[in-house]
């Protein structure tokens, strides 16, 4: 918030100059930020791939002291891994899809100023966002619907997340009304307007909300744990959390068995588990990022 205040001073300078300055400031600022963010992340990856003796001896800080894949291999090769990865991918893909569609469909009517019933329905969403009935009643809804131990049980409670809906509604409200009106004049129905006009114009927010939902499904531990009982339905987060929580005991347990290796250390395995859980969802980001570069000209939608 400080930079704009410098505004007045810089006004006198040449336009080109100010453009350069700001890009340099932005570059420096963001590069520093990236380093601050990356260093701790780097230390996690380093712990995962450095030799166990160095990890145990506290010699690994930010850079790997060697390279081995045994630690990561241990996490990847055990039976629950592929199964739980599959479950997580299904829940995330199907859930994100259902959620995004439901959210678009809800956000559009609520974003139209002339929509009758707008205030009351919006308020209902606000209210339900603030007040929460508790874990047990929510569990009973899922149980009564027979959705314990099903993918649907893990997905449907998040079919619409109020915050994401508001974000989308907010964006829709910013779209130029004339464009939507002209569609209406052309005789397009509301549904067709959403599909052919609104969605293409709102690609950035749809992409963002898709990401937010995907992250929400991917990261969810508590509900994935609460709404499943069989090991068959475990998601990746549940598997990894169990792995991390039991690491000390597991390592003591497997001493002497054929599976034991000096590279299996508690810090190393924790780091490996985290690295593995983050990589798939991080890969999603570059696809979203292309929509977040500004400069989308609303005029071009018309033409």
């Amino acid at each position: 918030m400080m930079q704009p205040r410098n505004n007045e001073k810089r006004e006198l300078k040449r336009k080109k100059g100010s453009e350069k300055t700001i890009e340099i400031i932005a570059c420096v600022f963001l590069t520093i930020l990236c380093f601050l963010v990356l260093l701790p992340c780097l230390s996690v990856v380093s712990q995962a791939v450095s030799p166990g003796t160095d990890v145990m001896g506290g010699k690994v800080f930010f850079l790997p002291t060697g390279f081995q894949l045994e630690t990561i291999g241990y996490v990847l090769t055990r039976t629950p891994f592929l199964r739980s990865l599959k479950n997580s991918l299904i829940v995330t893909a199907a859930g994100t899809f259902i959620s995004v569609v439901t959210t678009i469909l809800t956000a559009y009517p609520l974003s139209r100023p002339d929509f009758k019933g707008r205030t009351i329905i919006t308020f209902l969403y606000v209210f339900s966002m603030i007040f929460f009935g508790g874990t047990i009643p929510a569990y009973m809804v899922v149980k009564t619907l027979g959705l314990i131990d099903t993918y649907a049980g893990m997905i449907l409670p998040f079919a619409i997340v109020q915050f994401n809906m508001f974000m989308m509604k907010n964006y829709f409200e910013g779209l130029p009304g004339e464009v939507l009106e002209s569609a209406r004049v052309d005789g397009a129905g509301d549904m067709r307007t959403v599909v052919t006009i609104v969605c293409p114009m709102a690609k950035p927010v749809i992409a963002t909300v898709t990401l937010l939902y995907a992250v929400c499904y991917w990261n969810n531990y508590f509900h994935a744990m609460l709404y499943t009982t069989s090991t068959e339905m475990q998601t990746l987060q549940v598997y990894l959390k169990n792995l991390i929580a039991n690491i000390q005991g597991t390592l003591a347990d497997i001493t002497g068995s054929t599976g034991y290796s000096p590279n299996l250390t508690s810090d190393g395995l924790t780091a490996a588990a985290v690295t593995i859980s983050i990589i798939p969802i991080t890969l999603l980001y570059p696809f979203i990022a292309r929509y977040l570069v500004s400069g989308i000209t609303i005029g071009s939608v018309k033409g």
Partner: peptide, 12 residues
Amino acid sequence: MYLMLLPGLFFL
């Protein structure tokens, strides 16, 4: 417009 709201309201 009202049909569109149904799935969301249902889950809500």
